[in-house]
Design a protein around this nucleic acid. Structure first.
Lengths: 221, 221
DNA sequence: TATCATTTTTACCGTTTGGTCAAATATCTT
DNA sequence: AAGATATTTGACCAAACGGTAAAAATGATA
């Protein structure tokens, strides 16, 4: 009677989620990502999210207790994806490859998930009310771990000396800029609304900036 | 009877502003900058702005017709200040000095005017509903003008080849990051709320990143 | 001090918004 | 098909919000 097969008399999967539940939660989160990333937390309304999810507002609130719960769910889902590129930096790689891949992955994230990037940016700009703990613990620890790797490369003379944590900040800011400030980028470059053609030039620029010069290559690397 | 001395029978200065008017408009804009930069346009309320300006809401609306008018006034005031560092880049200078000064000025802006930076960031993130025109015309033109200078330096072999406009994007994003994402920076570095001590290390990092390497110095420059 | 324009306040309004409730409907199991 | 559970909806609510109107108070001028 315990297990996970069927407790009362319904079709529930492992996590206790019905087929309809999973479907609707997905629909809601998808719609909410649209609305939150476009208008921010306070600018978003449950009515718009419900409408975009083709669902009545009370029905939406049947799956998520509050507006904040939807927002937190989105952020929580996002964090793992967001950190994946940083996690992928390998201690036994060489600086150019590892940092180069990291930049490429982060830039790809901006291009492929601009709404997620803006959601994150909005949260930080608002003072990180929901993910402050995450930043202070998980992110801080991960940064320290990866910064130690970079520091070792510096000590070994394989990279120009600099504060590794600030180097990471620079990579974050430059890559995320193309998602968070895409309107400005497009307006300055004179591009249309959906045009993402600038990403190629951006990639070249970042390679020049971070790799072409920052990392000294003895040739043996 | 025209002039600017005194038209009807009151104490008005050049722009037709009473002493009290000027004082109160300043108080309102100051309070509004606090609130808007902290909570964004939609998160801000007239009640909070009025309260922070030690003023009743109707009295506030006696000086500004609407919430949006306050917001636009803030943004408009900001734009000139915001572009000053870029305007200061001189065609007859040398790359290291000019770009170095520019980075220093932008970083100083982030340290000294973080609220202004966040106000701007919020506006862009929201899709630049109020300053879209400015971005497409004034900013675009200014960027083209300065990019041409950088391009000339590149053509003359005084700088590593790269897209000058994206170089500007990189400078904008890295410097503004320290204001817009200060919460994240502090949490990752393990610093307290008001601590801005990281700016020194940030400046070193940016110098290394942009100057130490990007710009090739023939020695004669 | 009388006069007039400016400034401030009190009371209020219509709308929007996040959220609730109970009833109705669909879905699943037996 | 019956019964139980899960889902959906329409009607509604209290609070918050941007904004208004008109009267009261203040300040400046003569």
């Amino acid at each position: 009677m315990s297990g996970n097969a069927k407790s009362p008399a319904a079709v529930r999967t492992v996590a206790g989620k019905t087929r309809i539940q999973k479907e609707n939660e997905t629909r809601i989160l998808r719609a909410a990502l649209d609305v939150f990333s476009e208008s921010g937390f306070h600018g978003a309304t449950l009515d718009r999210i419900a409408s975009e999810a083709s669902m009545s507002k009370p029905n939406l609130l049947y799956y998520f207790k509050s507006k904040e719960e939807i927002h937190v769910a989105l952020l929580t889902d996002l964090l793992d994806v967001w950190l994946a590129p940083l996690r992928a930096i390998r201690p036994d790689g060489n600086p150019v490859d590892e940092i180069g891949s990291y930049i490429r992955r982060k830039l790809d994230s901006s291009r492929s998930f601009p709404r997620e990037s803006r959601l994150f940016a909005n949260e930080i700009l608002a003072g990180a009310p929901h993910i402050g703990d995450f930043l202070q613990t998980e992110l801080k620890q991960l940064v320290e771990e990866k910064a130690a790797i970079l520091q070792r490369w510096i000590d070994e003379g394989r990279m120009a000396p600099c504060d590794p944590r600030h180097l990471l900040f620079a990579i974050w800011s430059t890559t995320q800029h193309y998602a968070d400030f895409s309107v400005q980028v497009r307006h300055v470059l004179g591009l249309g609304a959906g045009d993402k053609s600038y990403y190629d030039e951006a990639a070249r620029m970042l390679d020049t900036l971070f790799l072409g010069q920052l990392i000294s290559r003895p040739g043996s690397d």
